[in-house]
Simulated assay, not measured.
Amino acid sequence: MERQSGIQSAESIIELNERFRGAGPEVVLRWAIDTFAPKLALASSFGAEDMVLIDMLSKLEPATTIFTLDTGRLHEETYDIMERTRERYKVAIESYFPGRDAVEALERERGFYSFRQSIEERKFCCRVRKVEPLGRALLNVDAWITGLRREQAATRTGIDAVEIDASHGSIVKINPLVDWTESQVWAYIREHDVPSNALHDQGFPSIGCAPCTRAIKPGEDVRAGRWWWENPETKECGLHLESGHGDHGARG
């Protein structure tokens, strides 16, 4: 069932993306707050991009909902940055967990590392631990904010600042950092003394579940450490389906 998004047509999306072309992420966030609050939420895995957005929102609208997907297999360093964020910005972080029965069945029937057997098995694990909880997190919002950037991966080169998320009731998906480079992200973090996950200093530019993330080697792509046994074209977990101006298929 589609929900009202406040965006009336594909033409409106095109116009918005033209309007935001070259605009700073704070401009996009200000529009998102004015248009959708309080039914607006930031999805955060507490990587560098998400920390930039949390810092920006703390200055624009501190009451913006922040949620995270606790898969049960996160790094200790990720829990540490979550707690430091809670204390630094005085915010409540809404954690969404996978369903107990689904995780128990997954581990009993498929084992503890089934995600390494095939792309299909890995995507099944992601559906249980990430995709289903995300669906619950988005049930009562009209728009959600992500830290996606085009530069991050081959699967993300076509994203826009504002998209319709057809997989979640056609709510609006907002990517304020879409045009930023990695160097811009880290320049902001340094300038504003933003907390960051300690794993970034250990060679982890992209951080997910502990068994599925490794440090990258010099010269490797920033997403090379995610599901490193797969091809770059398959490296999505299902959280970010191809949106845009219409209803497209899954990116994977």
Score class of each variant (00 low, 15 high):
Glu132Gly: 12
Phe67Ile: 14
Leu60His: 10
Arg73Gly: 06
Leu74Thr: 06
Ala143Arg: 04
Met51Glu: 06
Asn140Ser: 09
Ile81Arg: 09
Glu61Trp: 11
Thr64Trp: 05
Ala63Pro: 04
Arg116Pro: 06
Ile66Trp: 07
Gly147Cys: 06
Glu109Gln: 06
Asp70Trp: 01
Phe124Gln: 04
Ala137Val: 06
Val91Leu: 07
Leu60Asp: 08
Phe67Gly: 06
Asp101Tyr: 14
Ser114Lys: 10
Arg84Cys: 10
Asp50Val: 15
Thr146Glu: 02
Arg84Tyr: 10
Leu57Asn: 07
Arg129Trp: 02
Leu69Cys: 07
Tyr89Met: 13
Thr68Gly: 11
Arg110Tyr: 12
Pro133Asn: 05
Ser118Val: 02
Pro62Ile: 13
Leu60Ala: 13
Thr78Tyr: 10
Asp50Asn: 10
Ser58Ile: 12
Leu74Asn: 08
Asp55Tyr: 00
Leu74Lys: 02
Asn140Asp: 12
Leu138Glu: 00
Val131Ile: 03
Ala143Lys: 07
Gln152Met: 13
Ala105Glu: 11
Ile93Asn: 05
Ile145Pro: 03
Met82Pro: 06
Tyr113Val: 00
Leu148Met: 11
Ala92Asp: 11
Glu49Val: 09
Cys126Ser: 05
Gly72Gln: 09
Glu120Asp: 13
Thr146Val: 11
Gly147Met: 03
Val128Asp: 02
Val91Tyr: 00
Ala48His: 05
Pro133Ile: 01
Asp70Thr: 10
Pro98Glu: 02
Trp144Gln: 00
Val128Leu: 01
Phe97Thr: 01
Phe67Pro: 03
Ser58Ala: 15
Glu109Pro: 03
Arg136Asn: 10
Glu76Tyr: 15
Phe97Pro: 00
Lys90Gln: 11
Gln152Asn: 08
Asp80Phe: 00
Leu148Lys: 03
Leu57Tyr: 04
Ser58Cys: 13
Lys123Asn: 15
Ala143Tyr: 04
Ala102Asn: 09
Pro98His: 01
Leu106Tyr: 08
Ala143Met: 03
Gly72Thr: 07
Leu106Asn: 10
Tyr89Phe: 12
Leu148Glu: 01
Glu94Cys: 14
Lys59Glu: 12
Phe67Leu: 08
Ser58Phe: 11
Gln152Val: 09
Arg156Gln: 00
Ala102Leu: 05
Ala143Ser: 11
Asp101Ile: 02
Met82Ala: 14
Arg73Thr: 01
Pro98Met: 06
Ala63Asn: 06
Ala153Pro: 05
Gly99Tyr: 03
Arg108Thr: 10
Ser58Met: 02
Tyr89Ala: 15
Leu60Phe: 12
Gly99Met: 05
Arg88Met: 13
Val141Leu: 00
Ile66Lys: 06
